[in-house]
């Protein structure tokens, strides 16, 4: 990452089938301090297609962060995560997994799928906002890093 990139919006891929959650996420990011572009995939297949097309295009959307729901129609979150982490072009992208229960969190750990973060649903709105803010802080911390 170099300094030229500072100032460009964060590209976020939200993989989520629930329209309520999609809109909620969009609204929270709308109020964000930093510029961002939120792309949405409604199932696992759509997510993988979106990611691979971007890589193939080379000049397409460059995704900085993935928010991944586990319970998806067609290809579910576990498979999506496994494919991302097995793909050299994608595996560097941070993934935040949204799980429904702590039991699923355990399952994920046993799969050893290298998710970067887990968030357990249901989360209260305030907490969700807080998380989005911490993503912003995290992002800002990264972009402030000197070029390596």
């Amino acid at each position: 990452m170099n300094m030229e990139e500072v100032g460009r919006p964060i590209e976020i891929l939200l993989v989520e089938d629930n329209p309520g959650d999609v809109r909620l996420t969009q609204e929270v990011f709308k109020d964000s301090k930093i510029r961002n572009r939120l792309h949405v995939a409604r199932d696992g297949e759509e997510a993988m297609t979106f990611l691979r097309n971007g890589v193939n295009r080379g000049d397409g959307a460059r995704i900085d962060l993935i928010l991944l729901d586990l319970n998806l129609p067609k290809k579910d979150g576990r498979e999506v995560l496994a494919e991302i982490k097995a793909d050299d072009g994608l595996k560097h992208i941070p993934v935040i997994v949204l799980t429904v229960s702590s039991a699923e969190e355990d399952i994920l750990r046993s799969y050893n799928l290298h998710a970067n973060c887990y968030l357990t649903k249901p989360i209260e709105f305030d907490e969700f906002v807080r998380i989005v803010r911490s993503i912003e802080d995290f992002w800002l911390a990264i972009v402030k890093l000197p070029a390596g």
């Binding site: 629930n18 309520g20 959650d21 249901p122 209260e124 709105f125």
Partner: peptide, 12 residues
Amino acid sequence: EPLRMVASYVQL
């Protein structure tokens, strides 16, 4: 799930 929707949107 639906309760979370209600709670989240009324908070929004």
